[in-house]
Write a protein that binds this DNA or RNA. Structure first.
Length: 504
DNA sequence: ATGGGTCCT
DNA sequence: AGGACCC
């Protein structure tokens, strides 16, 4: 990073910036999954309502915790050691200067800079956010002490505001945003910054001359819906005004599991089968581990491919990389995934090859650049649970899962409360746990179990190699780095410290 | 332009 | 099955 290497940078320019850069082929997410799970469980000690987004981002709804603290001043004072003179822990967002922007269409936009810094809300959220910010500080402090990760956090009254607040002061800091500041803060952002306005929507909006959130507000709800569809359109209509009624959704077990690999090209069936069996191998390790823990097995198998030709066509249409994938899926009889089945690999590879030939007819040439094997529709498997694949048993599974994990159901009364402006909730995001350089993560490829073993030894990556396949700058290889902070656990906080604060 | 995921159409 | 979104 210090040398100018950035995430998702082309290899060519990364090597220009840093010639001694070492690039490794492939990846093994195992250690990151484990780290993420550790953080997830850590966070659940503070509140059961934790939503995970990707591996390193979490939302916590601490509404109830904050209410408890408010009701117990003695306990409250114990986390207020984190408060500063203004009652908030570290950064309180104070607004920023807004510049007037002239866009392609000549629309001039933006609101004047705010002059007042007082909380304009009388609902008591000011106080609740003070407590929330102390709670966030406490959680981040403990996270570092116990697990060794630094994190940034945003604290506000909606998920969106919390998420965006977390980006204001970035490495290892936190920012609290009062609701009164949210609309102006949003106004000056590019629309793409709004969570929910992705690549596709941002392009459609750009075609209308809309680049900034302030301009988005000029569009009627009807217009937005016709442009972006019912769901995203109506959501964005509210989000751009700072209105976010989404709830923190504690997720249960994963619904799908997949392994994928991209490569410069594969054009023969033998190679494809080798790659597929490698992917399957990694996937089965995961389904086995899950079966041991939860006793369920998948009943759906999916293969997806990306063909270079098709991908290029799509790419021309959309100027987007993720086009050009196609998939076939099939129900799989219960129990095929059972670790005890000695013919399991055979059966599954055979099924996958059948899917492959549905995707790529035998008489056609192909040039694949990606393969993905996925499983889904996990169902409890006790051996005698019959052959249910219907929707009924699916929902039965979901219900069991929820009660077993003691997860918080989606409470409708909470949703009702969130529909007004004066939110009771404090939502917090602990973002970007900087797991990339944690000592427990593998330092080189040789420690990873899921290597590209199917490649000829000569071509396989060695530690000294800079690039595994192709010359520097060849397509298909990119640099991905994350903010890296080497964090070492110091003296552990005792369980009682936590209980003191949270078992009220 | 990775290697995962979620949910909606 | 594909397409949007998220990291």
């Amino acid at each position: 990073r210090a040398r100018g290497v950035r995430k998702l940078q082309r290899l060519k320019s990364a090597f220009e910036a840093c010639p001694e850069l070492v690039i490794r082929n492939g990846s093994d997410l195992k250690h990151y999954r484990a780290a993420s799970e550790g953080i997830f469980h850590f966070l659940k000690r503070f509140t059961p309502c934790v939503e995970r987004l990707g591996l390193d981002e979490f939302f916590l709804d601490v509404t109830e915790k904050v209410a408890e603290f408010l009701g117990k001043p003695v306990t409250l004072s114990s986390i207020e050691c984190y408060a500063e003179a203004d009652g908030f822990a570290t950064h309180l967002y104070k607004g920023r200067k807004l510049t007037l922007v002239e866009t392609q269409t000549g629309v001039k936009s933006h609101v004047p800079a705010r002059t007042s810094t007082v909380d304009q809300c009388n609902c008591g959220c000011h106080r609740r956010l003070q407590i929330g910010s102390c709670l966030a500080k406490k959680i981040r402090t403990d996270l570092f002490k116990e697990l060794g990760y630094t994190a940034s956090a945003g604290i506000s009254v909606t998920k969106m505001a919390a998420k965006l607040s977390g980006e204001v002061h970035k490495p290892n800091q936190q920012t609290t945003m009062l609701p009164a500041y949210v609309p102006d803060f949003l106004a000056a952002l590019r629309v793409r910054k709004i969570p929910g306005c992705g690549y596709s929507s941002a392009r459609k909006l750009q075609a209308e001359g809309v680049e900034y959130v302030s301009q988005l507000r000029a569009l009627s709800q009807k217009k937005l819906i016709s442009l972006l569809g019912e769901l995203i359109g109506s959501r964005l209509y509210l989000l751009c005004r700072g209105e976010d009624n989404s709830i923190v959704k504690p997720r249960g077990k994963e619904k799908t599991m997949s392994e994928e690999d991209s490569f410069l090209g594969s054009d023969n069936v033998v190679d494809v089968e080798l790659r597929i069996s490698q992917l399957l191998k990694g996937l089965l390790e995961r389904t086995d581990a899950r079966f041991e823990r939860h006793g369920d097995l998948p009943s759906l198998l999916r293969l997806t491919v990306r063909d270079r030709v098709a991908a290029k066509k799509k790419g021309e249409q959309k100027n987007g990389y993720f086009g050009g994938r196609s998939s076939k899926q099939t129900a799989i009889p219960m129990g095929v995934f059972h670790p005890g089945d000695p013919k399991r690999d055979e059966k599954l590879i055979s099924a996958l090859m059948q899917l492959f030939f549905k995707l790529v007819p035998r008489n056609l040439c192909f040039h694949l650049t990606l393969l993905n094997v996925a499983v889904a529709r996990f169902q409890p498997f006790g051996g005698a649970s019959g052959n249910q694949t219907g929707i009924d048993s699916f929902f039965h599974t979901a219900a069991n899962t929820s009660s077993r994990n003691n997860e918080k159901p989606l409470i409708s009364s909470k949703r009702d409360r969130l529909e007004s402006h004066n939110f009771f909730s404090v939502k917090m995001k602990v973002a970007k746990a900087e797991v990339a350089s944690h000592p427990s993560l593998p330092r080189n490829k040789s420690e990873a179990t899921h290597t590209n073993n199917y490649e000829p030894t000569k071509k396989r990556n060695r530690n000294k190699d800079r690039v595994a396949e192709g010359p520097a700058g060849s397509p298909g290889i990119i640099v991905t780095t994350d903010d890296a902070k080497v964090a070492r656990p110091s003296s552990a906080v005792t369980a009682e410290d936590i209980d003191d604060l949270f078992n009220l």
